[in-house]
Structure formats: structure tokens, C-alpha cells
């Protein structure tokens, strides 16, 4: 059984959001990069749990990105996994990244492909679905729990107004979110081991870009808070009713 976990990198959650080159590029100077939380806390940790339960499982991490991504890939390997693969292409468009992931997945014959729910920088949440379609596999989006018995997966997923449990045969693509697993902190042994784990670099397949960011911008700043005394809560409700018109 082979599992592939798709890992992306994002700016740290407290990073200052600014743009350069006439507002066409994210200003990367001084930014700390982290593993996208959904990929780390939920997709990767769930895969590790599966491997811990069944030692015959092979677990590969996959990242599409340039050389500068390698520290983040090593961080992920410190949590666990047998080896990492980096497709040597700087991601610019969901479709082309999905095409790279699909190509690696096809070659490797994986039974289970995990992605995060979305990256917290571009907030797309589309790559898992694209990969599934490219590979003609079922796709369970927004999973909150995952169990495996043989080749049958039982997955809980978010639906409108609640959750639903579904059963599916492997191979399958699953996008992971909160509930799947509990976040872990890498230990010293993991960090040491990660240094010597294989990090395979593969060249990208030809893939078109379908979209491109033409311009970034920042939303207008808020006008400032109107404070109301705790002894006059009725005034707050009056403001919400008459001024803001939201009650």
C-alpha cells in the first residue's frame, strides 16, 4: 500500500501581506515559510497514523516547487514519511500544479492521495479535485475523519449543514481538514532522521497555465471601533438596528 501526501508551503500565518512589482507579486522578503497547516496537521499526520498502524505502508511526500522549498520539505519529513519528491517547477497556476501531481501519482501507483483542504495563501482548494479528475479517481473533499479496512475507506466529510459518512474503495483522493488528526510537533529523532531521508527531484512534465494573477490589492482599512458602555447595552443594539441595520 502506497500513500502520497501533497505538501505545499505558505507564508507564516503572521506574515505581513504586501506586494511588489506593481502589485503583481507577493513580497517574499523576510517572510517565514511554513508547511501549509492543512497539509501538515491533517493530511500528513493522518497518513502517519495509518503507517503507524500498518508498517507495510509506504509514505511519500510530494511538493511542487523550486530549490528554496527544500527546508520546508525537510520539516515535513521530520514529522515522518519514507521519502519526499520535489517536482522542480515554481507553482503559478492550480491546473499546472495538479498536472505535475497527477503525473507523479500515476508513475508511483499510489493507493491513497491526501491533500489539504486549501492553501492558506491563495485559498483555492481545488488541486485535490483536479488531480482526481486527471487520474479518473473518486474524490472526497473536506474530510474530517478517515478509517481504513483493507482497501475500503470510511470517510466523514463536511456537507451543507452537517457531516456525512461515506464508503469508497481505494484508490481515492481525499482533501483533509480539521478533525482528521491532531497536530504534532516533530521530535529530535525525527529532525535528525529527516536529514538523511531521500529527497528525489524530478523534472516537470509539460503543462499549460490556465490562469494568472494580474493584480493584488489590499482591502480598505476599517473606520475604527465605536465603543459603547457596558452599562448601556441597549445603545449597542440600537446602533446595530438603526445605524448598521444588521438586526
Amino acid at each position: 500500500m502506497k500513500i502520497l501526501v501533497c505538501i505545499s508551503k505558505t507564508p507564516d500565518t503572521t506574515a505581513k501581506i504586501a506586494f511588489t512589482d506593481n502589485n503583481t507579486k507577493f513580497a517574499e522578503a523576510g517572510v517565514q515559510w511554513i508547511i501549509n497547516p492543512y497539509d501538515e496537521w491533517y493530511a500528513l499526520v493522518k497518513a502517519l497514523e495509518l503507517k503507524e498502524a500498518d508498517a507495510s505502508i509506504t509514505l511519500h511526500l510530494l511538493h511542487v516547487g523550486g530549490t528554496d522549498s527544500e527546508p520546508v520539505i525537510r520539516k515535513a519529513l521530520a514529522l515522518g514519511g519514507d521519502e519526499a519528491i520535489r517536482v522542480n517547477a515554481v507553482p503559478t497556476d492550480s491546473y499546472s500544479v495538479a498536472a505535475q501531481i497527477a503525473a507523479v501519482a500515476k508513475d508511483g501507483g499510489y493507493d491513497l492521495i491526501f491533500t489539504g483542504k486549501e492553501t492558506i495563501d491563495y485559498n483555492n482548494g481545488v488541486i485535490g479535485g483536479m488531480v482526481a479528475e486527471m487520474l479518473d479517481l473518486p474524490y472526497i473533499a473536506l474530510a474530517t475523519s478517515f478509517q481504513l479496512a483493507g482497501t475500503t475507506a470510511t470517510v466523514k466529510r463536511e456537507i451543507e449543514g452537517g457531516e456525512e459518512t461515506v464508503e469508497v474503495q481505494l484508490p481515492v483522493v481525499v482533501s483533509c481538514q480539521k478533525g482528521m488528526a491532531e497536530a504534532r510537533i516533530p521530535n529530535m529523532r525525527g529532525i535528525m532522521a529527516a536529514r538523511t531521508k531521500p529527497l528525489r527531484v524530478v523534472e516537470p512534465v509539460a503543462a499549460e497555465n490556465y490562469t494568472e494573477v494580474a493584480e493584488f490589492g489590499l482591502p480598505p482599512a476599517k473606520a475604527g471601533v465605536k465603543l459603547v458602555s457596558p452599562d448601556n447595552v441597549e445603545e449597542l443594539v440600537r446602533l446595530l438596528h438603526e445605524e448598521a441595520r444588521v438586526i
Partner: peptide, 11 residues
Amino acid sequence: VFSGKAFAKVS
């Protein structure tokens, strides 16, 4: 984008 901290115009 950036969880609502910015927006992008995507072509």
C-alpha cells in the same frame, strides 16, 4: 487571498 487579508484579480 491570504485568508481575506488581500484580494487578487485572476486572469
